[in-house]
Simulated assay, not measured.
Amino acid sequence: MDNFLEIETSVKRVFNSFRHEVDGILDRKLTGGEFRVLSLISSGVNRTTDLSKKLDVSASHITAITDSLVANNFITRHRSEVDRRIVVLELTEEAKEFVASIEQKKKEMIVRRFSVFTEEEREQFQELLKKLAEN
């Protein structure tokens, strides 16, 4: 295929465009990484080891992010009642509301961005992305 460079350029442009729009939605309150951690905690991933595996980053990186989130009153840490070695992370009420608000804005952005496609094109695009991700 001679158009690899064109494909690469288009993928980068779309990715960067989405990232900038999400950064705008976050309104500089959090980094993208911090929001991903909040989002995962919201979905039930509440231990640092699980977060580092899910995000494929070091435990020390997760510790730095969670330190910032604790300092900014987005999460709390406490020891597990079952195993005191395990630290469990929980969203504060403020963070729960923030995550829900951001997720709604992201959903609206995705719907708007993908409205350029017909329903059939969206389904094809989803299948192609799935195929690419599984390869």
Rank of each mutant, 00 (worst) to 15 (best):
E93I: 15
I41N: 00
L89C: 03
V70D: 01
H20V: 07
I86P: 04
G33T: 11
R122P: 03
H20A: 14
K12V: 12
L40F: 13
E97L: 14
N135C: 01
I7S: 07
S80Y: 10
T49K: 10
Q126R: 14
V11S: 10
V88T: 12
L38S: 04
T92M: 08
F98H: 13
L30P: 01
V116W: 05
S42W: 02
I65Y: 00
L132R: 03
V37Q: 02
I7N: 09
E6N: 07
H61G: 00
F18Q: 06
Q104I: 01
F114P: 06
E134W: 03
I86W: 02
N16T: 06
R36P: 00
V22K: 09
R77W: 12
H78P: 00
H20L: 12
I75Q: 02
F114R: 14
G33Y: 07
I110D: 02
N135P: 00
I41V: 15
D67L: 05
F35E: 03
G32M: 10
F35I: 10
I62H: 00
A100M: 03
R28M: 04
E108F: 05
E127V: 08
L51H: 02
S42T: 08
D2I: 11
H78S: 14
A71T: 06
N3E: 14
E127M: 09
D23S: 12
L69C: 03
F15I: 13
K29G: 01
G32S: 06
V22D: 01
V82H: 12
M109V: 05
E94P: 03
T92R: 13
T118N: 06
K12R: 15
G24E: 13
V82R: 13
R77Y: 07
T76M: 03
S101N: 04
V57L: 10
R84H: 15
V45P: 01
T48Y: 02
G24R: 10
I75K: 01
V116Y: 13
F98D: 04
F117R: 09
F4I: 15
E108Y: 05
V111R: 11
R113F: 08
K54P: 01
I25H: 00
D56R: 15
V70I: 13
N16K: 10
S80E: 05
N73F: 09
V116M: 10
L51S: 02
K131E: 08
I65M: 04
L89M: 04
R122T: 13
K12N: 11
I65W: 00
S39D: 12
F74I: 04
K131Q: 12
S17Q: 11
L26Y: 07
K54R: 15
N3Q: 15
S10T: 14
R13D: 09
E134A: 09
F125Y: 07
A100F: 06
E34A: 15
S115C: 02
F18L: 09
I41M: 01
